[in-house]
Amino acid sequence: MSDLFIRTRWWVLTILVFVLITMFTAEFQQAQTTAVLASALRQSTPLIFGALCGVMCERSGVVNIGIEGQMLLSAFVGFMVASSTGSLVAGVLAGMATGALMGAGLAGLSVTLLGDQIIAGTVLNIAAFGISSYFFQQGRTLPSGKTPQVSLGPLADLPVVGRVFFINRPLTYISLILIWVVWFILFRTRWGLWTRSVGEVPSAAETVGISVARVRYTNLIAGGCLAGLGGAYLSLEAVGSFERMMTNGRGFVALAVMIFGRWNPIGIWGAALLFGYASAVQTQLQFRGWLADDPQFIGMIPYVVCIVVLAGFVGRARPPAAIGQPYSRE
């Protein structure tokens, strides 16, 4: 017990301070506090999807810097499908399929062809940018509108927390559930144990009969589905349309979130919320006209938080040992 406390004391302290500040501000400015927190959650959602994709890939030993591209192209394909069929569900599924396909492509390049994983990821990014820009048509809309808001009955009536967590749109709920699902898969199931051993010492996994290629393909494709959901979230849930470059670097921030979260879905959630919170505060400050002449400085806040946090914490995190290395038996 005390051991657990010592290991998690910084987390506990951070959460405590955060809760106290929130209670304090909520006391005086309930509306703004709720707005900032709700916006923090919204901003964190695509990062969660992206980072969960990253963790599936990296835990099996494959670096995926193509998450940005996977999200961008999924956002585009998801939007196009939803806009032409009128079905949001079809759009989301199309987004997932797009991400999965790109994951399979990454696997083909890096697992089968033993190519450099950074180059393979870069290929995904460039391809996604090119394809989505080329086929992009101005002025398309979603006949069905964005995904609908769902409120979870009595839970939604709780002060502050209710508004923030229990009145949301479907993909947001799904992201919150997936955090725990991915955690469970990685740390409780047989597949998770295989994934982690493949990411640490692939030859050891191979010698007990685990197929390194199969584990990596599966994880890259599953991770692609997650990134696809992130893309669909952007075009179908957050904005309701597609814009060029609409991911705006979130795929890369997701990687930072994954590292800060120490390749652990629960850590990732904390990191994504922190970054989302910094973004929300930034928006709020700009909204109030702080530093109106030089808004760039306010705009920097989330990235500065990101840098400080990475510089401060990452030294202690240890990535999977086999990361980035193509594996072949002989």
């Binding site: 144990l193 982690r196 051993s197 640490e200 010492v201 050891a204 996994a205 007990v208």
Partner: peptide
Amino acid sequence: FQLVPVLTVAENVVLGNE
């Protein structure tokens, strides 16, 4: 050695056949 250093002895022994 074909062991995964970050895993426990038990996990290493049963790996692949858990």
